[in-house]
Nucleic acid binder design. Structure first.
Length: 418
RNA sequence: GUGGCUGUAGUUCAGUUGGUAGAGCACAGGAUUGUGGUUCCUGGCGUCGUGGGUUCGAGCCCCAUCAGCCACCCCA
C-alpha cells in the first residue's frame, strides 16, 4: 500500500468507519459544557508565537522544542497552537470579555500541534476539548470545573479513571517550595540522574515525578508542597475538596502533581486512566491566576482544563463502549428493470422529504445484489420497485428484520416507515 | 531528541538453510429467469516501505532512509 503521498508523521486520518465515534464524543462534550452554562469560543489555529512562548514558560519543552513555528511573507513569526488556554485568554483580553458581568465560562474543541515523537496516545496533530472559567477565584469554580469534566467522562460511560488533585500554591509559595526542594536535593546531586541534575536548577519539582529508581528513592523524604501552603492557599484547597465532596466526586490528593505549563497556581488536577500506557492522562487542568494579566489584561483569575480526544477514544474502546456502525440508512431502494430505474429518483425524493434516510446504488442491477447490500447496511426496510408494481402505482415494502413484505401505494409509502 | 521491535495482496498474517510469493477474512461474480445474514464454486502479476550493496540469484544477508508500534522524555 505504497501511495505517492503519505500523511505527515504523527498525524492520522479519521476514516468513515470511525468518524461517528468522534462525532459522538464531541457531541457529548458540547452538551455537557452547555449543561454547566459554558459557551463555545473558536479561535484561530495559529497565533503569534510569542503568545505561547511567554505564557507557557520559556523553559517548557513545549516552547523549547515542540512548537511548529513559521514566518509568513512579511516576516511575522507565528506558531500552530500547541495548547488552547493561551489563545482563549488572548481573545478574552482582546475582546474585553471581562467587561460583561459575571464569570466568563467558555469551552472549545479543535486540533493542537506539538512536534514530538509519536507514540500511543500522542500525536503531532491531536484534538483537544477544553473549558475555561475566567473571572473568579472562588474555590466553588475549581470544583465545578472538575465536576464538568467528571460529568463529561461519566456520560461517555467511562469507569476506569481516577481523579487526582493537588495545590501548587501561589507564586510566593511556589518560590519558597522550590527553594526548599533545591536545599533538600542538592546534597544528593551526584546520585540523581542526568535529567534531574538539570531539573534541580530549573524545575526542582519535576524531580518528584522522575521514573528513575534512585531519584524516586531520594524523593521519598523530600518536602511536600502541601506543607508549604500559606493560610490563603490551604483554605482555598480545603474548600475545593469540600465542594468536590458535595458534587459527589471521588478523588485523591496527589502532592506530586506537577503541571507542565508555567502559569498554573493553586488547584491542579488530572484525570488518569492507568490502562492507557505511558500517556495516561485523559485530561488535566488547573488554576491560572496570573495568566490574564501576563497576557496583557487586568489581574483576573481563571481556571480551566483540557483533554485529548484520542485518549478518550482509546479509553472508550478499551471499555468496549462503541458498538457497530451507527450510520445506517433506514431504507434501501431496490429497483429492478429499466422502468423502475427510471422512476427511482421520484420515490427516493418523496422519502427524503419526509426525512427518511435512503440509500440506492444505481450500479447494482440484480435483485440479489441489491438485497445483499440492504442486509449489509443494516437497513430496516427495503423498498422494491418492479415493473408490474409500478404499473399498479404500488411498491413492495419489505421489513428486513421480520422478513415480511407488503404492497403499499406510493402515496402512502412514507407513512408506513417509522 | 534517545532506545527496542516491526514494515509482504484492501486487511490480518505465512513464507522453511537466499533460487524471483501464499492463506484466512474482506471484496466481486455465480449456483434454472424477481428477494437478504448460512453453504458451495470462481476470481489475487501484489513496485515484498524506499534507495543502495553483497551474490550467478534476495521478501529472506549488509548499509542507509522513511514510516508504524512501544518505551524514555514530555504531556492531552
Amino acid at each position: 500500500m505504497s501511495s505517492k503521498y503519505n500523511l505527515p508523521r504523527g498525524t492520522y486520518d479519521i476514516l468513515p468507519d470511525d468518524s461517528y465515534k468522534w462525532e459522538y464524543i464531541i457531541d457529548v462534550f458540547k452538551n455537557t459544557a452547555k449543561l454547566f452554562n459554558y459557551k463555545e469560543i473558536v479561535t484561530p489555529i495559529f497565533e503569534d508565537a510569542d503568545l505561547f512562548e511567554r505564557s507557557s514558560g520559556e523553559t517548557s519543552d513545549i516552547v523549547q522544542k515542540e512548537m511548529y513555528k513559521f514566518n509568513d511573507k512579511k516576516g511575522r513569526t507565528f506558531a500552530l497552537r500547541p495548547e488552547g488556554t493561551a489563545p482563549v485568554v488572548r481573545s478574552y483580553v482582546e475582546n474585553s470579555l471581562g467587561a460583561s458581568a459575571g464569570i466568563q465560562k467558555l469551552f472549545y474543541t479543535g486540533p493542537m500541534f506539538r512536534y514530538d515523537r509519536p507514540q500511543k496516545g500522542r500525536y503531532r496533530q491531536f484534538y483537544q476539548y477544553g473549558v475555561e472559567a475566567i473571572g473568579s477565584n472562588n474555590p466553588y469554580i475549581d470544583a465545578e470545573i472538575i465536576a464538568l469534566f467528571y460529568t463529561f467522562v461519566q456520560k461517555l460511560g467511562l469507569t476506569q479513571f481516577e481523579v487526582e488533585i493537588n495545590s501548587v500554591g501561589n507564586e510566593l509559595v511556589s518560590a519558597r517550595y522550590d527553594k526548599a526542594l533545591q536545599e533538600y536535593f542538592t546534597p544528593f546531586k551526584e546520585e540523581l540522574c542526568h535529567d534531574c541534575q538539570i531539573r534541580l536548577d530549573k524545575k526542582p519539582r519535576r524531580i518528584l515525578d522522575c521514573k528513575v529508581k534512585a531519584c524516586k528513592e531520594i524523593g521519598k523524604d523530600a518536602p511536600v508542597m502541601l506543607d508549604y501552603l500559606d493560610e490563603e492557599c490551604s483554605s482555598h484547597f480545603e474548600k475545593v475538596k469540600q465542594y468536590l465532596q458535595q458534587f459527589g466526586i471521588p478523588f485523591s490528593v496527589n502532592p506530586k502533581i506537577v503541571r507542565g505549563l508555567d502559569y498554573y497556581t493553586h488547584t491542579a488536577f488530572e484525570f488518569l486512566n492507568h490502562k492507557l500506557g505511558a500517556q495516561n492522562a485523559i485530561g488535566a487542568g488547573g488554576r491560572y491566576n496570573g495568566l490574564v494579566e501576563q497576557i496583557g489584561g487586568k489581574s483576573v483569575p481563571g481556571i480551566g482544563f483540557a483533554g485529548g480526544f484520542e485518549r478518550l477514544l482509546l479509553s472508550m474502546e478499551l471499555e468496549g463502549l462503541f458498538s457497530g456502525n451507527k450510520v445506517i440508512p433506514q431504507v434501501y431502494i431496490v429497483a429492478i428493470g429499466e422502468k423502475a430505474q427510471n422512476r427511482v429518483a421520484e420515490i427516493i425524493s418523496i422519502l427524503r422529504q419526509e426525512n427518511i434516510s435512503v440509500e440506492y446504488d444505481p450500479d447494482k442491477t440484480s435483485l440479489k445484489a441489491q438485497m445483499k447490500m440492504a442486509d449489509k447496511l443494516n437497513s430496516n426496510y427495503a423498498v422494491i420497485l418492479g415493473d408490474d408494481e409500478l404499473e399498479r402505482g404500488v411498491v413492495t415494502l419489505k421489513y428486513l428484520l421480520e422478513r415480511k413484505q407488503v404492497d403499499v401505494s406510493i402515496s402512502e409509502l412514507s407513512s408506513h416507515i417509522k
